[in-house]
Amino acid sequence: MAKLTHQSLDSFRRELEENKGDWIKVGMSTCGIAAGADEVYRVINEEVQKRGLAVRVEKCGCAGMCYAEPLVEVCVEGVPRSVYGKVDKDTALKIVDKHVSGKRLVNDHVFNVKVK
């Protein structure tokens, strides 16, 4: 990586913005990991790869709702951006199957929806 300068920082950011597609984020702070986020992250990653979906799987920090960990946020074009809570292995598979592939929200686990 070439060193950033104050002139190149903004153009680098724009470049990143253009390449940002669909994504899934798993809350992977200590609170999330304690509730089983490690497994959820692995399952989602495997499933996304298996199906060859064009969605990035990333980690994120604590969103504050520790009572609802593990938390998974999904931002896919054409579906309201949603935060899922109390996600286990089965729900994680449903999220990939229904939300990412099927463009439909998963029942009983939505904790928040965000309108862009």
Partner: peptide, 23 residues
């Protein structure tokens, strides 16, 4: 940024406006 940004990626931080204040 907590729960928004990938804490293991400086790119994601910059994407969310990071280091703009420093500049």
């Amino acid at each position: 940024n907590c729960g928004e940004v990938d804490p293991e990626s400086v790119d994601d931080y910059i994407l969310h406006g990071g280091y703009g204040a420093l500049k």
